[in-house]
């Protein structure tokens, strides 16, 4: 039974990791806690579902369009809301509050438009499951885990091996110096938001597919845990998002099997304990200084 709980936990954890990856990207590049990330996660899932229904069940096309729409939405949020705040050299808090505002607008718009009931997400991939002894593992669970790993690898590749990825890292370390390199910082930042929003939409769609249900509050519900996962792993370190997500998922599953009421409390307690001993997170670097 323990192994089954482990599998349960790794699945839950993979869903957290999927969300945490995009979140960590934005924090890593901009030192900004993007409260709207959960909303993009939710919107991505809704776009996919609605497009799929409108196009007679064509999942792949719906998915691709949803990614494009959500990515565009993220880039627009930066372009219209956050850029001005940056240009006026306002404090980081102003940007953070702005993301809270945008999250509220998006959540309520979806609520108005689609209603608060849970919507069922058709089973797009009927992959089946395998039974190993007493443990059941569905292929969908394996897929989610795999997608999280692949996305993390992809993002790491972009950041370290592409021109724009290097620009993103430069911007994260010193925005003015980056400008002096001829980097169009505003473009790079909007691009970062585009990528993070696409990641969020992928996460939202995959989770919707797995549980076969989506609802307006799904972003908010998973937001807290993913944030904790990102912090646990080391908030600007990408592999940290994955590691943090998996750990919180497993701890939560094992905690729930002991006492379901305290499942969240146990997960957050672990987070606090780790932070007491290693404030920068499990994989975080000790110094976060800039010259």
């Amino acid at each position: 039974m323990f192994i089954q709980q482990l599998v349960n936990g790794l699945t839950i954890g993979s869903t957290y990791a999927l969300v945490a990856i995009g979140f960590t990207l934005i924090f890593g590049v901009l030192e900004l806690i993007n409260f709207a990330h959960g909303s993009f996660y939710m919107v991505g899932a809704y776009f996919t579902l609605m497009l799929m229904l409108a196009m007679g069940g064509n999942f792949v096309l719906a998915f691709i369009i949803s990614l494009a729409l959500t990515g565009a939405l993220g880039a627009m949020m930066d372009h219209f809301a956050l850029r001005r705040i940056r240009e006026r050299r306002a404090t980081k808090d102003a940007a953070l509050i702005s993301t809270i505002g945008i999250a509220t607008v998006i959540d309520h718009s979806v609520l108005e438009f689609f209603g608060s009931e849970t919507k069922s997400f058709p089973a797009v991939l009927n992959l089946g499951k395998i039974t190993v002894g007493n443990t059941i593992i569905s292929y969908m669970q394996i897929l989610i885990f795999a997608v999280a790993v692949i996305l993390m690898g992809l993002l790491t590749f972009i950041l370290y091996k592409t021109r724009i990825g290097k620009a993103m890292r430069a911007v994260s370390q010193n925005m003015d110096a980056a400008k002096l390199m001829g980097i169009n910082v505003n473009f790079v930042i909007s691009f970062t938001f585009l990528v993070a929003s696409v990641l969020a939409a992928i996460a939202g769609t995959m989770v919707g597919m797995y549980y076969q249900a989506i609802e307006v509050t799904m972003g908010f519900a998973i937001g807290m845990k993913s944030f904790a996962a990102a912090v646990l792993g080391g908030i600007s370190v990408l592999p940290g998002a994955m590691l943090g997500g998996l750990i919180i998922g497993v701890v939560e599953a094992l905690g729930a099997s002991i006492s379901s009421g305290y499942r969240d409390a146990i997960a957050f307690a672990v987070l606090i304990i780790v932070l007491v001993f290693k404030p920068s997170g499990l994989l975080g670097k000790k110094h976060n200084n800039k010259v």
Partner: peptide, 24 residues
């Protein structure tokens, strides 16, 4: 003009305090 444009025109600055990218 914005900085990226100015740099492309051939005018650039080595700023006060060096401002290197420390983690690169």
């Amino acid at each position: 003009m914005g900085t990226p444009q100015i740099v492309k025109k051939g005018l650039t600055l080595s700023p006060e305090g060096r401002q290197v990218f420390p983690k690169l």
